[in-house]
Write a protein that binds this DNA or RNA. Structure first.
Length: 380
DNA sequence: TTCCCGGAGA
DNA sequence: TCTCCAGGAA
């Protein structure tokens, strides 16, 4: 729930804050590492309830890329007319506001997106924030990220990786819009856990056999589909998923594909990575960064992402996506995937990365920390 | 966390 | 011959 809220509000003009509870000890560490006074220290007379029952929250404002650690000075639980219980918290120096957090589902604790319940407009909130908190500690993008990206771009333009020519965005590019979208969906479904060249061949065979449309797949024999898509990874399961997806597209979307992230995720065999890819490519609607294993690995090696409130590496591609989206400018959300995938296939490989031939190794915190490849030439 | 599949590369 | 890759599902 919090995730979809976050997605829906992150780039709208509505006021949306990310808040996560962190422990007092962690908070103290954060503070001392930043060597700064807290807002409550500046304003000790606040009428907070104090005591250990008041959680400390980390607050950041997405649109301004500002992150500050503050203490909550008051907390109360209110029940709304709908029956939903909401925790209202008050933050120091922003006394006009309260922030609410849905506590009806207490199991979803680590990271919350909450809505402002006050009546201030966004510019007014910004003024308050800027007045209340110094901007000396904004949620900064990682240092030199633009240099790193530029360096990777240059390395990538110098050679070809499989992703350059075989990506799913090429699927059915000559088809009418609806068929093209379905082709993108099929290509995405098949391409997961599969070398791109293999996937490309499978999509071509489906196309040549007139099986790149929902109705055709729905009426086709599963064994036929299976033999056509072989040897993509997990072809048995994918043939079965393809049939199910075709049936759903036919019955619910008139042969077209779902146009929202949430509906795409309901399709069997479509997870977060592919759902974002399909939104980007088929609908040209960027809902989030398409994070696969390469983007996940490289973002962590560069220390571009971390688990919320910590410096630890992210553990899943989804965590990486959320962390990356906090600072990466939206115009980079689409290009970052092919860029890092290609880089990850040729140079920043999972095993024995080729740091010796990487031109941004001097900017990479992880350079030369893993066993290097005996060969200095990248594989194709 | 483990399994799924087939191919690539150590 | 063995290990690794790759994303989703259970």
């Amino acid at each position: 729930m919090s995730v979809s809220l976050l997605r829906n509000t992150a780039f709208l003009p509505s006021i949306s804050l990310g808040i996560q509870t962190i422990s007092s000890a962690k908070m103290r560490r954060t503070r001392s590492s930043l060597n700064q006074e807290t807002p409550s220290q500046k304003n000790p007379g606040c009428d907070g309830t104090g005591g250990s029952s008041v959680p400390e929250l980390r607050v950041f404002i997405r649109r301004k890329r500002v992150k500050k650690t503050v203490e909550v000075i008051a907390k109360e639980v209110k029940e709304e007319s709908s029956g939903k219980k909401v925790m209202l918290v008050r933050l120091p120096d922003i006394e006009d506001f309260s922030y609410s957090k849905d506590i009806t589902h207490p199991q979803s604790t680590p990271s919350k997106t909450v809505r402002l319940t006050g009546e201030k407009t966004l510019p007014q909130l910004m003024q308050t924030e800027i007045k209340g908190f110094s901007l000396s500690d904004p949620l900064q993008p990682p240092s030199n990220w633009e240099k790193v990206l530029e360096g990777i771009r240059k390395m990538r333009s110098a050679e070809d990786a499989p992703v350059d020519s075989m990506g799913c965005e090429k699927a059915g590019s000559s088809l009418p819009a609806k068929e093209r979208r379905f082709a993108v969906l099929v290509s995405s479904l098949l391409s997961s856990q599969t070398k791109d060249q293999v996937n490309h061949g499978a999509v071509q065979r489906l196309l040549q056999n007139g099986l790149l449309a929902a109705d055709a797949i729905d009426s086709a024999n599963e064994e036929t589909i299976k033999s056509l898509i072989y040897p993509v990874g997990f072809y048995t399961r994918k043939a079965s998923n393809l049939k199910k997806v075709a049936k759903i597209c036919l019955s619910k979307y008139n042969g077209d594909i779902p146009s929202s992230l949430e509906e795409l995720l309901l399709l069997p065999g479509i997870g977060p990575k592919m759902a974002h890819l399909v939104m980007n490519v088929a609908w040209e609607n960027v809902q989030g960064i398409c994070v696969d294993t390469h983007v996940h690995r490289i973002s962590n090696r560069l220390e571009w992402v971390s688990r919320p409130g910590t410096k630890q590496k992210t553990r899943t591609p989804e965590e990486t996506r959320e962390s990356l989206q906090l600072w990466l400018p939206k115009e980079e959300w689409v290009p970052i995937n092919p860029l890092l995938v290609g880089f990850g296939q040729t140079i920043c490989t999972p095993l024995r990365p080729r740091c010796a031939i990487c031109t941004v190794s001097d900017l990479c915190p992880s350079a030369f920390k893993e066993a290097a490849s005996p060969s200095s030439t990248p594989k194709k």
